[in-house]
Structures are given as structure tokens and as C-alpha cells.
Write a protein that binds this DNA or RNA. Structure first.
Lengths: 152, 152
DNA sequence: AAGATTTATGATACAGTATATCATACCATC
DNA sequence: GATGGTATGATATACTGTATCATAAATCTT
């Protein structure tokens, strides 16, 4: 992620935050930038380290978790539960709807590819759920993969 | 899960273990039974408690994790990463292929419904993965849901 | 602008999940 | 019954996440 695009992503993120009555405070911005600069999903602790390196500023892990909560609520960040790490949304600038995203997560290096899913696939994925008495909370799929480099 | 079906599941599990050159030792059997008797996914620690209650026997958590590893390798047990808990496979007795299972996981009570997915859906889910240079490791999807009871 | 209210962050403690490592026991087969 | 492999126990510790109380910063009200 180069600097130019990071800046435009951040300003878009700021706009989105304001729309939802939230503020992209300096601390939140630093956390988001740290995530954008990484090509991998990072744990909350790794994020705190990244912010420390990038901005020479220590943030308590507790704050990182709180900030991640806010950023996830705003759909600016996604949690990869299969590795307990967090990744910035790849589509912040593109007025996405977050219909049903698939995440290919490298089990080894934690690189993540986010793929948008089309409407018919969404229907297939949602099929049976209501009939079984379940209610879908989160339209997000994580797939356990190996990336090209790690697959050798 | 009634007792009759648990017994038949266990004997099937035993057969499957032997096929793969693994043994379903008494301890592993107890862990698997505890999982089968639960209608929810359980953490390793909860599992140790269940075995304690059910069989009046304390197993160190370390052992539970090791046993879970073996049972997962044998596809007798699945990890629900979105809640960090483990659940027995619903299809042990039915000569399943584990083509692509979807798991509906109640975010509140951790009940799990395992759904088999048909071939065409599998194709859709696997689409794009290779083109993006990723290799799928695990044909398993977890969906964050609420069950009927918890949805109110 | 002073005070009151809300929101964000800091500090500390601790709970819950998971692995590393070394030791011991069990089991097979020769 | 010695040997080697597999399974389990014991202990320590790392990693992930939350609870709670305190403080600071922004916002609102009068």
C-alpha cells in the first residue's frame, strides 16, 4: 500500500466515520494506518508494536482492542478469526456494500486477499440458514489457505 | 445425542481411527464422548470439565489439546475458530467425504449446525482461489449466526 | 467562559486460549 | 525383558482478550 493511496483511504475512512457519528481520532488513525501499511493481518499486540515503530508512540493493548472494535463497527477493519488477527478492509475507497466478502487467509504468513462475492453466490450461501432456525449475523467467510510464497 | 447413537458413533470413530493408523485410546474416547454429549461447541477447558463430570477423571488441558489435534486430523472433530471452541463432527457415521461443510455457529450459546454443501456450491466457493495464487487448505466455512432460541 | 456531560484514552489487573518442554507411562515387537 | 515408538502427565509460559477504574479531551449548556 503506497503512501498516496493510504492518504486517500484515510480521508475516505474519515468521511465514513463522520457519517456514522464516529470520529477518526488521531489514535484511531494511527492504528488504521499501521494496518494499511502491513500486507498481513496483525494481532492487537503486533499492531501496538507497529504503531510504536511507525509513530514512536506506545498505545496500551486495551486501547488497540477498543479501537479495533470501533473500526470493525465501521467496517473499516475485519477480524480474521481463524488466525486471531486483524486486517484493514481492502475496499474502503470503493463505496462497497460488504455484501458477502470472502477472505483467503494464508495460514503461514497471514497475508489476506479479500474477494467480493456476487449476488447469486450470496443466495447459495444464505440458503438453508433460515430454514434451520438460524439468523446470519455476519456476512463474512474466511478460508484457510496458503499463499503462493508459503505454498512453495 | 442419545446413548445408542453415541455408541455407534464411537465404534465408527474407532474404525476410522484404525484405518488411519491411529488408536482411539480410552482418553480420546472419553473426550469424544464428552463432545458428542454436548449440544454446543466447547472449549478445551470446558471439555476437560465435562470429562471430569462425566467420568470423574481429571485430564490436563495440555492433553485435551493434543487429543483435539488427533481428533481433528481424523476429521472427527472440528474447530469453530469464530468462538475458539470445538465440536464433534455431525456426520461421523455416514461415510462422509467432507467435501465442503458449512457450520452455522450461534454466537451466543455456541450451538452448531453442520451443513453439507453440494458440488456446484463448492465450485463457486473455490472459484478465484487458485487464480489469486492461493491454495485451499481446509474445506470448511464458519458462519456467525444466532440460533432460534438466542435470536428470541 | 465555567461547569456539566459525554466520549476517548490510559493504567492495571486478570481471565481465557494455546503451546513448549521435559518427564513418565504404556504398548508393541523382537 | 530390552528397545523404540506412542500417549499422557506436569509444569511453565506465551498469546489473546476483557473488566474496571482513573484520567483526559472534546462537546454541550447556560
Amino acid at each position: 500500500m503506497n503512501v498516496d493511496s493510504i492518504e486517500s483511504i484515510i480521508s475516505k475512512a474519515e468521511a465514513m466515520s463522520n457519517q456514522h457519528g464516529k470520529k477518526l481520532t488521531p489514535t484511531r488513525k494511527q492504528v488504521l494506518i499501521a494496518m494499511l501499511k502491513s500486507d498481513k493481518a496483525l494481532s492487537a499486540y503486533e499492531l501496538a508494536d507497529s504503531v510504536k515503530k511507525e509513530f514512536d508512540r506506545s498505545i496500551p493493548t486495551m486501547s488497540v482492542y477498543r479501537i479495533l472494535d470501533v473500526l470493525m463497527e465501521l467496517k473499516l477493519v475485519h477480524k480474521m478469526s481463524i488466525v486471531n488477527k486483524y486486517v484493514a478492509c481492502s475496499h474502503i475507497t470503493c463505496d462497497h456494500k460488504h455484501s458477502f466478502a470472502r477472505f483467503l487467509v494464508c495460514n503461514n504468513c497471514h497475508k489476506v486477499k479479500e474477494i467480493m462475492t456476487n449476488g447469486s453466490t450470496v443466495k447459495i450461501l444464505q440458503g438453508n440458514i433460515e430454514e434451520l432456525g438460524f439468523k446470519l449475523l455476519n456476512k463474512q467467510l474466511e478460508l484457510n489457505c496458503l499463499c503462493h510464497e508459503c505454498a512453495g
